[in-house]
Amino acid sequence: MPSLRIHPHAGVRYALLLLGWLSVVLGVIGIFLPMLPTTPFLLLAAACFMRSSARFYNWLVQHSRLGPWIHDYLDGRGIPRRAKVYAISLMWASIALSCYLVPLIWARAFMLMSAILVTLYILRQKNLPQRTSPQ
């Protein structure tokens, strides 16, 4: 498991906690709604909790129902192909909408470069065989 790096600034920790819990809620909803991905939201929650709260990070990764969704990635075994497709698709849809709404060319360039780099990172991760539920 990765080492925790709690952020020193309280305001950042609270923002990360809020984003982490929002991601947990969306991840849980994604278990029941096939159009909403579960794994990317739980990975985001784990990353947020890793920098804001050791207690909530440990709760998430040790949770009997939610932990197995992210253990493969955290242990270095990879990401299910379906999760990759969902994550990349949602990211590019949100970037496209953001680029449409934001008229600043430098902001668009930054968003597009970020999306390209995140896409490359996700695609370079190992693929896991598809499964319908965590083990």
Rank of each mutant, 00 (worst) to 15 (best):
M1Y: 10
M1E: 12
P2E: 13
P2D: 11
R5Q: 12
R5N: 11
R5W: 03
I6N: 00
V12L: 14
R13E: 09
R13C: 15
L17A: 10
L18P: 00
L19W: 03
L19G: 11
L19Y: 01
G20V: 15
L22T: 12
V24R: 00
V25M: 03
L26M: 14
G27H: 02
V28Q: 00
V28E: 02
I29P: 00
F32V: 06
P34M: 08
P34V: 09
M35Q: 12
M35N: 01
L36C: 04
T39S: 01
P40Y: 05
A45F: 14
A46D: 11
A47I: 04
C48E: 07
F49Q: 02
M50H: 09
S53K: 02
R55Q: 11
F56E: 06
Y57E: 08
N58T: 14
N58C: 02
W59H: 04
L60T: 04
L60E: 01
Q62T: 14
Q62G: 14
H63N: 15
S64C: 10
P68V: 13
W69I: 09
W69M: 07
I70E: 08
H71W: 12
L74I: 02
D75M: 09
D75E: 12
G76R: 04
R77P: 00
R77M: 04
G78E: 07
G78D: 04
G78C: 11
R81T: 13
R81Y: 10
R81A: 15
A83K: 07
K84F: 10
K84P: 14
V85F: 10
A87M: 13
M91F: 07
A93F: 09
S94C: 10
S94N: 04
S94I: 03
I95W: 00
I95T: 12
A96Y: 02
L97G: 06
C99G: 05
C99L: 03
V102T: 12
P103W: 01
L104C: 06
I105S: 14
I105G: 05
I105N: 03
R108A: 08
R108H: 07
A109N: 00
F110C: 09
M111N: 04
I116Q: 01
L117P: 04
T119M: 04
L120P: 06
Y121K: 01
Y121W: 11
I122M: 02
I122D: 06
R124A: 15
R124H: 13
Q125R: 08
N127P: 12
L128I: 01
L128H: 02
P129S: 03
Q130T: 13
S133Q: 11
